[in-house]
């Protein structure tokens, strides 16, 4: 039982949320994690709320951390916020101190230098030539949609059915 109840996330002016799959056009869905104090245990527990934000150009991709701002008026029954800025795009990590791109524990430059020292292959992956994220959507990457367990055989080949 919690004694301290958080105010609803939708009442806060600005929020940071993680983008989750959403099929709505012109809007993105966000999961907002906030910590709620359980005064009995004197511990904080995460609590998730879902907010829809206006995003006509669909700049947010699934997994991105985004700043969203409250709209002065609701656009629809669900859309209460608008997207302000993409803070942390998924899978494109930048080191805040040096400003260099990072993959897990090492800089991309370092990885490339190691490959060059051994003699880089022409077929190897190159960041400069790589297209923008999202070129495999609906082809081989289905992380932008929610999947479900297939419960009915109707002959159609639905890629979201697992």
């Amino acid at each position: 039982m919690t004694n301290m109840v958080l105010p609803a996330a939708t009442k806060v002016h600005m929020l940071i949320g993680q983008c989750v799959p959403c099929i709505k056009q012109g809007a993105s869905k966000f999961k907002i994690k906030r910590l709620e104090l359980d005064s009995n245990l004197n511990m904080f527990f995460p609590k998730h709320e879902v907010v829809y934000a206006h995003d006509p150009e669909k700049i947010c991709k699934t997994g991105d951390y985004v700043i969203i701002e409250k709209l002065p008026e609701k656009l629809t029954r669900l859309i209460t916020h608008k997207v302000k800025e993409v803070l942390y795009p998924l899978g494109d990590v930048t080191d805040p101190i040096t400003g260099k791109k990072v993959v897990v524990g090492s800089f991309r430059d370092h990885i490339e230098n190691v490959s060059k020292a051994y003699g880089e292959k022409k077929t190897a992956f190159k960041y400069e030539k790589a297209p923008k994220r999202g070129w495999q959507e609906n082809k081989k990457d289905f992380t932008h949609v929610e999947t479900y367990i297939k419960y009915h055989e109707d002959g159609s080949n639905d890629p979201t059915a697992v």
């Binding site: 899978g91 993959v103 960041y127 297209p131 082809k139 990457d141 979201t160």
Partner: peptide, 16 residues
């Protein structure tokens, strides 16, 4: 992410 997309394209794997 970019490497992930390149890899699944090259190896012909569908990721769901």
């Amino acid at each position: 992410y970019k490497k992930f997309e390149w890899l699944i394209e090259n190896l012909d794997i569908v990721y769901k």
